[in-house]
């Protein structure tokens, strides 16, 4: 039996709904994980990374 026989007989007409459900579940897991309490301080620190690179500021014209 070939893979194409199996796939052809699998009856995938409801496939779009199954895929939709799977990814809604994945999305909800990410939402729960992201907005769960207890990680605010860590995220606040992570969010500041671009501002903590100790770069000199831009050159400015005299008098500006």
């Amino acid at each position: 039996m070939k893979l194409s026989d199996v796939m052809s007989a699998a009856g995938l007409s409801g496939y779009a709904i199954v895929a939709l459900l799977l990814f809604v579940i994945a999305f909800l897991a990410i939402v729960v994980r992201t907005f769960a309490p207890g990680s605010a301080a860590r995220h606040a620190r992570d969010a500041r990374l671009p501002l903590d690179d100790d770069e000199p500021g831009p050159a400015v014209r005299a008098g500006e």
């Binding site: 729960v32 994980r33 992201t34 769960a36 309490p37 207890g38 990680s39 860590r42």
Partner: peptide, 9 residues
């Protein structure tokens, strides 16, 4: 552990 998001961090 899941809710504290240690795994993702």
């Amino acid at each position: 552990r899941f809710a504290a998001a240690r795994w993702h961090h």
